[in-house]
């Protein structure tokens, strides 16, 4: 895989690149602050650094998308995000449908016992699909 470095040739392109660097830079600084903080035993400082970095990145991203005049993302990126979300949700759904009913049967038969982690995972998956179903229904009614 090649690392392609974009060298914008227009002013708009350079401005777009500066925005992207600022956004990705903020996220990177936040994540690095958290890792370094945890690594050297300053968890609270790391967490604050993470919060500041991620909040700044999100704020820059929102500003660039809704207020700024630079196109950071476009319809192709949205389409890719939609496909990624679709594949992720479908993958989790198939994995859940294939796994959990079988585990319930095994538990009922006395061959298996759900651990705390598995219970939490099942709850998290259920909550995710509950939210997805609500959003889907709302969008379908409006469509």
């Amino acid at each position: 895989m090649f690392l392609v470095i974009d060298r914008p040739e227009t002013q708009v392109g350079r401005r777009r690149q500066r925005w992207k660097q600022a956004i990705y830079g903020s996220f990177t600084v936040g994540i690095a602050a958290l890792l370094v903080g945890v690594g050297i035993g300053f968890e609270l400082v790391g967490t604050i650094g993470y919060f500041v970095g991620v909040t700044a990145g999100a704020a820059l991203c929102l500003y660039a998308c809704f207020v700024g005049s630079v196109t950071i993302s476009d319809e192709r990126f949205s389409a890719i995000e939609r496909r990624a979300s679709h594949y992720t949700l479908m993958g989790l759904a198939y994995a859940g449908i294939a796994t959990f009913p079988a585990l319930f049967v095994l538990e009922a038969a006395g061959h298996f016992e759900f651990s705390q982690t598995q219970d939490t995972l099942l709850l998290a998956l259920s909550a995710l699909y509950l939210v997805w179903s609500a959003v889907y229904t709302a969008l379908r009614i409006r469509a």
């Binding site: 974009d6 914008p8 040739e9 392109g13 196109t71 476009d74 319809e75 990126f77």
Partner: peptide, 19 residues
Amino acid sequence: ISQEELAVAVDVTRQTINA
């Protein structure tokens, strides 16, 4: 015109024109 110039003209990213 370059991909980037066309991208600016139609308000998308250069990568989208390339794709």
